[in-house]
Amino acid sequence: MTLSVSDLAVSFGGVTALDGVSFAVRPGSITSVIGPNGAGKTTAFNAITGYLRPTGGRITYDGAALSGLRPSAIARRGIVRTFQRTSIFPSLSVADNVLTGLHLRSTAGFFDVLAGRRRLTAEESSLAADADGIIAFVGLGHRHDEIASALPYGEQRLVELALALAARPRVLLLDEPGAGMTGVEKTVVSELIRKVREQGVTILLVEHDMRMVMGISDTVIVLNHGRVIAEGTPGEIQAHPDVIRAYLGAQHGPA
């Protein structure tokens, strides 16, 4: 059940965004990818989840290749992502957002729906219950019927997390879940990420907030100029000379 990336390369025209990146995400861990802006973190996410076709390398999950699959097919294999810029279904209510996210948990096909099978009613009500459970889990119970785009920014990000959880991920890729949040909101998100992991979901995280990264990660991978420059526990990374150089430039001590 390991997500592993080997020798991943992505280039846009003449620009090399990823240049032979390899890492493995240990099942059940919280693994963070950090690095300066433009290091290739989001590019790696896009390649893993099928939004971008890599120019080289292999991406496998549980031994099976993911490269070349459509994002929806990758989601069906349990690898679900969120986006750096808030991504929700803006004109739907919170409940309908999450209900839509439950797409993979329901089975009704076109002819079942047209025939109006009795079993559909049961499925719909069990989906609604699932949605309520997920909404409560992220703490948006009080916003159940509100239109998602009308919520404050921090809560929209929680809607996004709820949507991703609804797709029943085995590996959850979170692209800067704490971006633009207040300190309190970040604490809430960190706590939620921990709880998700406790349910057996592997987490791969891109994040700029070092306090958050160092607080929740088991493993930290550092990218710079499209290459992995370090990989280790938060303690090891904070003391790594190459990392300090990448973030602060040469001849500086640790921050």
Binding site: Y51, P71, S72, A75, S91, T100, G101
Partner: peptide
């Protein structure tokens, strides 16, 4: 509403 998001939750 949001095609990339729809794909990410498994909508073909």
């Amino acid at each position: 509403e949001n095609e990339p998001l729809a794909e990410s939750i498994g909508v073909d």
